[in-house]
Write a protein that binds this DNA or RNA. Sequence first.
DNA 1: CTTATTGATACTATATTAGTATCATTTAGA
DNA 2: TCTAAATGATACTAATATAGTATCAATAAG
Lengths: 136, 136
Amino acid sequence: MRFITRDTDYALRAMVLMARALRQEGRKVFTVEEIVLEEKLPKVFLRRILQKLAEKNMLLSYKGKSGGFSFLVKPARISIANVIRVFQGEIELTNCLLKGKICPNRPECKIRKKIKALNSRVVKDLENINIEELSE
Amino acid sequence: MRFITRDTDYALRAMVLMARALRQEGRKVFTVEEIVLEEKLPKVFLRRILQKLAEKNMLLSYKGKSGGFSFLVKPARISIANVIRVFQGEIELTNCLLKGKICPNRPECKIRKKIKALNSRVVKDLENINIEELSE
DNA sequence: CTTATTGATACTATATTAGTATCATTTAGA
DNA sequence: TCTAAATGATACTAATATAGTATCAATAAG
């Protein structure tokens, strides 16, 4: 089962790396190249990922020579849930039941309700894990 | 995000239907055709799904004329977790970190530990929702 | 025996995921 | 001012997973 896709995974790793260097060495700006060397990730793919995080106002990007990416939001305020949402959309365990096509006759389906309650807990948990603590 | 695939979804619906008819009318054996008519599902696809449930010893199949499927295990003892496992394998939110390829340098990765704890809770929750109660 | 059923398996279609290629734009610094 | 190093944007390709169809074999009730 795929819960976290590679987009999300790479984004988390890149930011965890950045958060650690920020805390330990005060380093703020990272190029894609630097992160790729540390983490051994596909370069252009990671670039697009960081671009998206910048577009979503988690990171700040600097174009041109000696450019790169830094945090716009403090690592402590970026949760795993936030990152998942950027790349995978809303966290939704009940996809099977919410679309008319698949479950047209069950407006008050029990499976749905049960899974929704579970979903809320999962989301809450994911909201409570942030990049800062992951970097410690 | 895809948590429950259509296999799992159809399997749950078919069994919920069967459990309800069993409780309400004492009906035990259902043909694929009957379930398909009620739930509007693709026939051959559902057949394969029920075959798999039989293979995994949740259902019992009867071949030949007036054959069909019945429960081998009581609906109350079949959890959503059981069904997910049949079609999607072990419930594993940390697929991103457990495969050597993707995360070779982090044997004690923090993200992994956190998500593992979350995973345990999700599994526990899914173990506690069964077909019988879904049919009520 | 015939027919309605499941068993098994090969095939196809579609969607998603993962990644590459390429060119445009920006900007620091020689 | 020019160049090189960086991100921005977008189109393309490959691999994988998901969802389903088609078909024939085996079985067993009546």
